[in-house]
Computed example of a mutant assay.
Amino acid sequence: MATDAGRPHPAATHPDPWNAATSGRTVMAAVLMIFGGAMAFFEGLAAVASDDLFVVTRHYLFEFSLTGWGWVHIVLGVALVAAGCAVLFSGVLWARYFGIAVAGLGAFANFLWLPYYPLWALVLIAVNILVVWALCTGAHHEADAG
């Protein structure tokens, strides 16, 4: 009767969140980053293309030209899409940190954008906060699941 008693067995290791398989939370965060980045990009294009689409407020503390806000949203939108693609296709730790940073900046920029387009800004703030939450908790969830 043959046994495996003499063969060395590989030691069970705990999964490393830096090389863990991508969980559902991380995939959700990546898809939301791509969606939110596309929305921010189109929001920026609308602000640059036609200034009469948005309400121009007077005496706003963070007063900035609509063209300037448009370029801010275009840059953040492109960065969010790039971060979402990096998280979705690689899932490495630097992509998560980059996604957290860009989504945080996106939430902050949309908070300052509230007087110009309140409903759209609130939706993007919620999306960006959900992305930050999912990326922050996804690595721990993936490490425990393995």
Rank of each mutant, 00 (worst) to 15 (best):
residue 41 F to L: 11
residue 72 V to W: 02
residue 18 W to V: 13
residue 85 C to M: 10
residue 144 D to W: 10
residue 92 V to P: 03
residue 139 A to F: 10
residue 11 A to F: 09
residue 127 V to H: 05
residue 56 V to W: 14
residue 53 L to E: 12
residue 113 W to V: 11
residue 104 G to M: 01
residue 55 V to F: 09
residue 146 G to I: 09
residue 9 H to A: 15
residue 123 V to R: 08
residue 100 I to C: 04
residue 66 L to E: 13
residue 86 A to C: 06
residue 4 D to A: 13
residue 124 L to H: 07
residue 127 V to S: 07
residue 8 P to Y: 02
residue 80 L to M: 09
residue 128 N to P: 03
residue 5 A to E: 15
residue 32 L to S: 02
residue 67 T to E: 10
residue 71 W to G: 07
residue 11 A to T: 12
residue 106 G to T: 08
residue 102 V to I: 04
residue 91 G to R: 01
residue 34 I to A: 04
residue 137 T to M: 00
residue 34 I to D: 02
residue 85 C to R: 00
residue 120 W to T: 09
residue 110 N to Y: 01
residue 94 W to E: 11
residue 16 D to C: 07
residue 91 G to C: 02
residue 66 L to F: 10
residue 11 A to M: 10
residue 83 A to T: 06
residue 95 A to R: 00
residue 56 V to S: 15
residue 96 R to N: 09
residue 104 G to I: 03
residue 21 A to V: 09
residue 51 D to A: 14
residue 133 W to C: 11
residue 56 V to Q: 15
residue 34 I to L: 08
residue 29 A to Y: 08
residue 37 G to C: 04
residue 7 R to M: 15
residue 41 F to R: 03
residue 135 L to V: 06
residue 129 I to R: 00
residue 45 L to C: 13
residue 36 G to M: 05
residue 120 W to E: 09
residue 89 F to Y: 06
residue 94 W to I: 13
residue 38 A to F: 01
residue 1 M to P: 12
residue 132 V to G: 10
residue 23 S to N: 08
residue 32 L to E: 10
residue 128 N to I: 04
residue 108 F to Q: 05
residue 73 H to R: 03
residue 51 D to Q: 14
residue 57 T to Y: 13
residue 58 R to S: 15
residue 107 A to I: 03
residue 25 R to N: 12
residue 27 V to W: 01
residue 5 A to R: 14
residue 80 L to H: 04
residue 106 G to W: 01
residue 88 L to I: 11
residue 100 I to Q: 04
residue 40 A to V: 11
residue 57 T to V: 15
residue 51 D to P: 03
residue 9 H to P: 12
residue 92 V to S: 06
residue 30 A to W: 01
residue 44 G to K: 07
residue 44 G to F: 01
residue 120 W to S: 10
residue 44 G to L: 04
residue 71 W to I: 10
residue 85 C to Y: 07
residue 111 F to W: 12
residue 133 W to Q: 10
residue 36 G to W: 01
residue 129 I to W: 03
residue 16 D to N: 11
residue 71 W to D: 06
residue 110 N to E: 11
residue 124 L to C: 03
residue 70 G to A: 02
residue 9 H to Q: 15
residue 141 H to I: 11
residue 42 F to I: 13
residue 60 Y to C: 14
residue 72 V to C: 00
residue 60 Y to H: 14
residue 81 V to Y: 02
residue 6 G to F: 08
residue 57 T to A: 15
residue 53 L to A: 09
residue 84 G to R: 01
residue 94 W to R: 10
residue 125 I to G: 06
residue 35 F to T: 14
residue 48 V to A: 02
residue 94 W to V: 13
residue 121 A to V: 07
residue 28 M to C: 10
residue 98 F to K: 00
residue 1 M to C: 12
residue 91 G to A: 06
residue 43 E to W: 05
residue 64 F to G: 12
residue 93 L to E: 14
residue 76 L to N: 08
residue 95 A to T: 02
residue 119 L to V: 13
residue 56 V to E: 14
residue 101 A to N: 00
residue 46 A to S: 03
residue 112 L to W: 06
residue 135 L to E: 02
residue 54 F to H: 00
